[in-house]
């Protein structure tokens, strides 16, 4: 059986600057994969190239049996590869309900009501705030809303870009608890994180990125078991 997401030899960048220097990465159905790496390693660029926001220079992206290598981001969303962008990107002047509904316009529009109920089951706090403007909520709540909006499109694979960024330690714990919950529901998650410890606790496999290429891939135990890797890439 082929993988859910299969990235082969992906190259890309901005203008003349090559950021991704041949990235190989796979995610199987139902798997939680952590993509780790320091600032500037190319994690977010990889994310954006895979999602079709920036064009790939070379290499292939296959998702769910489809070739999405040069696809427009609209096609990527339609295929069910849903990104929750970095930095709590919600629509601040729209209500919580409108934010969630917007998530379902491109995909899974006909099952919007059922998916709303599903999102409220995961994030009961959002249900209490349906009519509130998203911009007036706390950072943690906005992050939940951004994830909820992603879930409204019935993702086959959910890419979470730094969901714990800028949250208090308590909220970070809550966030990872929620990701665990999504994983237990059978959803495939690609978790792009700098928070190494907690990411490795919930991931099935992990990749470490450096200078635009994958330097390590394996299980969290293998990663933590190698002193060299730990020192060199994880700072643990």
């Amino acid at each position: 059986m082929s993988a859910l997401l299969e990235i082969r030899g992906l190259r890309g960048g901005y203008g003349q600057v090559e950021v991704l220097r041949g990235v190989d990465l796979t995610v199987q159905a139902g798997e939680t994969v952590a993509l780790l790496g320091s600032n500037g390693a190319g994690k977010s660029t990889l994310n954006n190239v895979v999602c079709g926001i920036y064009p790939a220079w070379a290499g292939t992206v296959h998702f769910d049996g489809k070739d999405l290598s040069r696809a427009h981001y609209r096609e990527v969303v339609k295929a069910g590869l849903i990104q929750v962008p970095e930095g709590r990107k919600v629509f601040p002047n729209l209500t919580v309900l409108e934010n969630l509904e917007l998530g379902s316009f491109t995909r899974a529009r006909e099952r919007r009501a059922a998916n709303l109920d599903k999102v409220f089951a995961i994030f009961p706090r959002l249900k209490e705030r349906l009519a509130q403007l998203a911009g007036t909520m706390s950072g943690g709540e906005q992050q939940m809303l951004a994830i909820g909006r992603g879930l409204m499109a019935e993702p086959r694979l959910l890419i979470l870009d730094e969901p714990s960024l800028g949250l208090s330690p308590l909220l970070v714990d809550e966030m990872f608890g929620l990701i665990r919950q999504l994983r237990e529901g059978g959803l495939a998650v690609l978790l792009v994180e700098q928070n190494v410890g907690q990411s490795l606790e919930i991931a099935d496999r992990a990749y470490v990125m450096e200078n635009g290429a994958i330097r390590f891939s394996g299980t969290p135990d293998e990663l933590l078991g190698s002193d060299e890797l730990r020192r060199a890439y994880l700072g643990l």
Binding site: I53, R74, K78, P85, F91, L102, F105, G150
Partner: peptide, 16 residues
């Protein structure tokens, strides 16, 4: 309105 509020987030839900 989504684009007004945040273009990156709009792209993430498939809006051009």
């Amino acid at each position: 309105q989504a684009v007004r509020d945040n273009e990156d987030a709009a792209r993430a839900i498939g809006v051009n």
